[in-house]
Computed example of a mutant assay.
Amino acid sequence: MARTDGDSWDLASSVGATATMVAGQRALAHREQLIDDPYAEPLVRAVGVDFFTKALDGEIDLGDVNPAFTPRRAAEGMTVRTRFFDQVFLDAAAAGVRQAVILAAGLDARAYRLPWPTGTVVYEIDQPEVIEFKSTTLADLGATPTAQRHAVAIDLRDDWVKALKDSGFDPSAPTAWIAEGLLIYLPPEAQDALFDNITALSAPGSFVACEQIGDMSAFDDERHKLMSERMKALGSNIEITDLIYQGDRNHVVDYLGNHGWDVAAVSMEDAYADNDFEYPDDEMSRAFGDLKYVRAVLTRKP
């Protein structure tokens, strides 16, 4: 179902189901001992979507979706992504930053699994139903946050800035922000507004990380449609094309650079090489070959 103004979701539907899909890939990466995320698999199983639990149990062959998409390939791809965003938080902490914000947190368990320095506060922002599910499930698992965790239950289309401040956020202190896997689900103008708000809330020395996808049309070409049809045949209810926003948008590197941030970007191929993985040579990988992982530090207020 296509997006509508004010649409909502849980972790089994719409945009929320994509968060569960990502957590499923993190579970595979944990199994391969490439990352340390013991919470990904139990969270996915608690959501209870058959497609994802069957994939974890080996009852669905990912090769039926894409012959090159083996469990190891899925694990490596998510490892590259996870390590990148983990490292931004770790680098920020090493630089003395003690305030972190995870935007559209979904099933992200970084507040529970990263070695946060004493006194660090981690804010997680997502829709109320998503926040409630994750908080309750992790509590039932006996998980304890490794930082002070403040869950901010609000849609990013609402006044999340006020909600964040009301939860104790201090705009005068440097902050580490991540918008992992988020931007494609925002209209172009909302992407700009997000970074405008982040910049306004950030003190010099703050960090931010996200992805930049140069060619959004890759989500709507025949290769992607074929993969989507194969996933549906296996029981998936995710149709990425209906969930994302097309249209011309500002490139993140340029936008941040023009707003006081010192920006660095790494290509997918280089990110794989940095992790001693070989970048896959198949059609879908080539279609998204222009994706970059972006990190920046605020050096001046615009």
Rank of each mutant, 00 (worst) to 15 (best):
C210W: 00
A19I: 00
L256A: 04
V97G: 00
E129T: 13
K232F: 07
V266W: 00
P204Q: 06
S8G: 07
Y279N: 08
A151C: 12
L141H: 05
D270A: 07
G260S: 04
D281G: 13
E124F: 06
S217K: 13
V22G: 12
E76A: 02
G16L: 04
L298P: 15
A93N: 05
W9F: 10
Q99R: 00
E132S: 12
P38L: 01
D91I: 02
R45L: 06
Y293F: 09
A46P: 15
F85K: 13
T241G: 11
P42W: 05
D158Y: 03
T18Q: 13
E283T: 15
R81I: 06
A179C: 13
W177A: 10
P115M: 01
D159V: 07
S8Q: 05
A147I: 02
E189V: 10
A193N: 14
D61V: 01
G58E: 06
L62H: 10
A147K: 08
E180N: 09
G48A: 09
M216H: 14
D221F: 01
A93W: 01
L11P: 15
V130C: 14
R81L: 08
P174Y: 02
R98E: 04
N275F: 00
Y245Q: 07
I244G: 10
Q127L: 05
A29K: 09
Y255R: 09
D170S: 13
R83W: 03
P115A: 02
I102Q: 05
A111G: 15
G247Y: 03
P128K: 06
G58F: 04
G48S: 13
A287C: 10
A218P: 14
V44Y: 05
R26D: 04
I213N: 11
N66Q: 08
L298Q: 15
E32R: 13
G16V: 05
S217I: 03
F85A: 08
P117T: 02
P187R: 12
V152S: 12
V101D: 13
L56Y: 03
I178Y: 00
Q25V: 03
A29Y: 05
L103Y: 01
I178D: 09
D166S: 12
R73M: 02
D220F: 00
R98P: 14
Y112E: 06
G205E: 10
S8M: 02
D50G: 05
R295D: 14
T136G: 01
T53A: 02
R157M: 06
F207P: 11
A19T: 09
R72L: 11
A173D: 11
A94C: 00
F84H: 14
Y112V: 08
I35S: 11
R81F: 06
L114V: 10
I154T: 14
V101I: 06
Q191F: 03
V49D: 14
D276G: 02
L62W: 08
D276P: 06
A153G: 15
E59H: 03
A40Q: 08
V297S: 07
G181I: 09
I102C: 04
R98M: 03
E239L: 09
G6V: 00
K225M: 11
N197F: 00
A109E: 12
E239F: 04
R149C: 04
V97S: 00
V253Y: 04
V88H: 07
N66W: 02
E283Q: 15
Q33E: 12
V253W: 02
L186R: 11
D57C: 02
E278A: 10
L291K: 15
M78L: 09
I213A: 05
Y123F: 14
